[in-house]
């Protein structure tokens, strides 16, 4: 019995170790590789390698990572396949990549409302001024949803979310006609610029308008 228990415990340890092993799961896409922050990281690594005498340019470095990453993912997929039923039943999924890369050009969700022919902002992420449904929209699980949009990922989900906001606005503002959502992207400034000028205005992206009449 002791031996069987030891084997089972070690199998569990093996499964969580293999699944935890760093792997670029979900990152081996052209979209992820071409993200400006990722490109900046590639350039910084290339510069660092060049500084210690390794002759490689950014494109070669990127190709090297792509080839190694796709090969590794392919092998990993085969290794973890037999583990999946155990993992699914026991909730022992791993994958710990917290703040692996930091968003240096995040986008803020902004919600505007059209009333009496004029637009006004009713919600903006982390704003103390525009606070419509703040308790709901600032809850941690909603933050996780909106965090994807902050990276400008998941546009279809963003539009679904906008539609939900439109339905709630139709209930909360009976005389409003339209709702508009957008993501305002700002490059996070270095400390001296932040002290001198505060946060930049930002660029409005993903602007989407919803008529509220159809939700009443």
């Amino acid at each position: 019995m002791d031996h069987l228990r030891a084997i089972l415990v070690l199998l569990h340890v093996l499964v969580i170790s293999v699944l935890s092993f760093p792997a670029p799961v979900g990152m081996m896409t052209e979209r992820a590789f071409s993200h400006p922050d990722t490109q900046a990281s590639f350039q910084s690594y290339t510069d660092a390698l060049n500084a210690v005498g390794v002759d490689i340019d950014k494109d070669e470095f990127q190709q090297l990572l792509w080839d190694a990453g796709t090969a590794f993912i392919s092998v990993r997929r085969k290794v973890v396949a037999p583990m999946q039923p155990y993992v699914a039943l026991t909730g022992t999924e791993q994958g710990w990549r917290m703040f692996g890369s930091v968003n240096r050009r995040p986008a803020w969700l902004r919600v505007e409302l059209k009333q009496d022919g004029a637009w006004r902002t009713i919600y903006e992420m982390r704003s103390d001024e525009y606070t419509w449904r703040r308790q709901q929209l600032d809850q941690e699980r909603v933050r996780a949803v909106v965090n994807n949009f902050s990276w400008l990922h998941s546009k279809r989900t963003y539009e679904d979310f906008g539609l939900w906001l439109a339905r709630r606005a139709a209930e909360d503002f009976p005389d409003a006609t339209h709702l508009r959502t957008s993501m305002v992207r700002r490059a996070l400034p270095p400390p001296d610029e932040l002290r001198a000028h505060g946060m930049p205005e930002g660029t409005v992206l993903w602007e989407t308008e919803y008529s509220l009449d159809k939700h009443r």
Binding site: S20, F21, P22, A40, S41, W96, R97, S101, V102
Partner: peptide
């Protein structure tokens, strides 16, 4: 595992 592997995956230049 949680701490060690999250550290190893903090590869962003920042």
């Amino acid at each position: 595992l949680v701490y060690g592997t999250t550290g190893l995956q903090k590869l962003g230049q920042e």
